[in-house]
Design a binder for these strands. Structure first.
Lengths: 206, 206
DNA sequence: TGCAAATCTTGTCATCGGCAAGTTGTCGCT
DNA sequence: AGCGACAACTTGCCGATGACAAGATTTGCA
């Protein structure tokens, strides 16, 4: 049947994609608690039951959005590390900056990604996506302390990630420097990053 | 009217308290997303509309539970620090251990406390309760590096808190050492703590 | 070409949070 | 003591939600 170009086709065509995009926007607008499957459907221009054909449940949609978030996070980390030149210490700091910048730009998504809510890594793809961010951090640490033992490298990768993650998490929750100006917060973040690098180097040269 | 001792009185008497306790248990059982005002009411043995007389909304109840959580967290930190003797370094490590132990014992509550969901510090009491945990960490750091400048102390307090918070958060989310035994995780946590202390001391003596 | 499967729709159900109105118990005031 | 206002709790209702069922439409493959 011929129909006008502006008419909505019965089949959306890319509903899965559209739902993920709409869901991400909705999430940042209304928060995790205001996230609604039906509202996602409305924004995608389909009926409330349509998403069921692409996501088994609302948790499935959240998991998909989280996976995409991990990929973006990894991209932001590598991009910022690349901009930081060849010095391993600078690269590690840069990666941390990329991490924090992504979290600050997508606070609700970031919260979802690191929330055990609807996110219990049942999906193998989610665990894999999360692991890639860890591996990036691990590689950067290994480049910084190449002569350290495997165990020290691992411990310091943990530590490096924990420092960065903890700092930006606390900032996003308003627990650190609530009333500080953005650039003051950035300075504090950089201070935390260099303290972290110092710790890694110290442990790596022992 | 005389009634048997076992009969339920029309007035509960301590509903506010009972709701907070029931809510906390429910939260740990069903997760933040499974938390329901009506289920809290059921567990407290009252009708679904009774909580409204004690909490303006579900977010109010969550905020109350979070405040209690902060008080418990601070108590756990001071208790563990006290057990660690007089050495400032040991006390700082101990406080971190108390922090992590509380988080591990109450993962969902911990997530709520550090979640911007329903937790936007509108309530002054909540902000105050949260601040007390930060001040504890700050005092422990200041005791460790008494001769450092105020700014260094502040930055190192940030760093110390971020390290501890980030580490336990990642562990609880299963991002760090998912398959490790509990004691192996504890060892990794202690390693992170001592690395953190070392850096604080170093920065404080510079 | 024709038919099965995929996609999307409308309709329904139990449950949720919040509000309204009525019931029961408590407590202060005279 | 008694009574009247108020606090605590109840039932009942509303719109919205997630999930499910059954029907309509489109696609694609045999």
């Amino acid at each position: 049947m011929a129909r006008a170009k502006t008419a909505k086709p019965y089949h959306h065509g890319e509903l899965r994609e559209a739902l993920a995009v709409a869901g991400r926007r909705l999430m940042e607008e209304k928060g995790l608690r205001g996230f609604t499957l039906r509202e996602c459907a409305r924004r995608a221009g389909v009926s409330h039951a349509a998403p069921a054909h692409h996501f088994a449940s609302i948790d499935d949609l959240l998991a998909e959005i989280a996976v995409r978030g991990y990929h973006e996070l990894a991209a932001a980390m590598t991009a910022e590390a690349r901009r930081s030149g060849d010095d391993p210490a600078r690269r590690l700091v840069g990666q941390g900056v990329g991490y924090m910048a992504f979290a600050a730009a997508n606070p609700v998504l970031f919260q979802l990604m690191f929330s055990r809510e609807a996110n219990r890594f049942e999906a193998e793809t989610l665990a894999q996506a999360a692991k890639s961010a860890y591996l990036l951090q691990r590689e950067a640490v290994e480049a910084l302390i190449p002569r350290a033992s495997g165990e020290v490298k691992e411990r310091m990768a943990d530590f490096a990630w924990a420092s960065v993650h903890g700092f930006i998490t606390l900032v996003l929750e308003g627990q650190l420097g609530e009333r500080d100006s953005p650039w003051a917060l950035k300075a504090r973040g950089l201070a935390a990053l260099s303290a972290m690098v110092e710790t890694v180097v110290l442990a790596g040269n022992r």
